[in-house]
Amino acid sequence: MKWRGREPFLLIINGLLMAILTATTPFLLRRDVAGAVALDLSALRLLLDNYAATFIGAVGMTLVILAGQIDLSVGSALALCAVVAAQVSQMGWPVPLAFLAPILVGTLIGLVNGTIVAYGRIHAILVTLGMMTILRGLVVHLVPAGWVATSDAFKAVGLARPLGISTSIWIAGIFALIIALLTRYTRWGREIYAVGSNPQAATIIGIRPHRIWFTVLLFNGFTIGLASAVHASRFGVIQNNIGQGFELLLITAVVIGGTSIFGGYGSVWGTLLGVLFLALVRSALIYFRIPALWEQAVYGAFLLFAVGLDIARTRSWSRALRGGAA
């Protein structure tokens, strides 16, 4: 089968961005005092480390959007889970608990989101928007000082580099690989696509859309728990405003990665390339000393552009399927 998606195009764009950065800035190549050029991967590594939680979160968001839903609570959920991770890490318990606790909390949040959306039949935008506000309030309440510190043992795990690659990247990489395979080779994965593509047709075939919507939102909660554990383990201090705008970042990455905002089409690989693209754009803005406030505008422009492409594609499909569905 030949590629029909956006992945090859994104690969090229990302390659071009890297090439431009390499040529014009000390991103990959560094000149020493003698003028010799040496390969220096530290900047790229740091970039990937910083975006590990985003990679993980974007994979979960991909499933949610593929199923035709949305989760706006991920930023606040990330903050709450990270705070929980930091506080548990300070309690002197074994370090794995500091990873498990946020995952548990995240899964609980996903459970609530999924239950209300799927079985209360309330639109996901409303439910997760409400959840977003509630959780942010909870974070502020839990962290009256404005920040909490993580324990050194917890941080030691986060900053470790087994086989030269940081724990964060290991976790993100393995997680993404498993989910990518899951979406292609399991019934659950295929039914996510089917429900997102045409819920009526899925129902006729005997798939239960609400069950799928419940499970993806539940799973997204788990994902955010994992992302926040990874995130928290890399920092000594968790501020109560972390994760603000995280939902928009994830949605932007997913849509730039070629996943249709209307559901039913896209891939985890595309999302990973979409996150990498946003990360490289951010690096470029920093290297070229463009003020940080432009970052949001640039991301927004990319989001609109990607959604525009998406709408054009979806229209051509629903024209072909006049009346039938979509």
Binding site: R184, Y185, T186, R187, G189, R190, E191, Y193, A194, G196, S197, N198, Q200, A201, A202, I204, I205, G206, I207, S260, G263, G264, Y265, T314, W317, S318, A320, L321, G323, G324, A325, A326
Partner: peptide, 28 residues
């Protein structure tokens, strides 16, 4: 009015809901 999945491939539309599976994990 055909009940189809416009975003999914022809192959996938043929088998949605009853994909053949193999292996101990029941992979598609």
């Amino acid at each position: 009015e055909p009940y189809l999945f416009p975003t999914l491939s022809v192959l996938e539309n043929l088998f949605v809901g009853f994909q053949p599976r193999h292996g101990p994990l029941g992979l598609v």
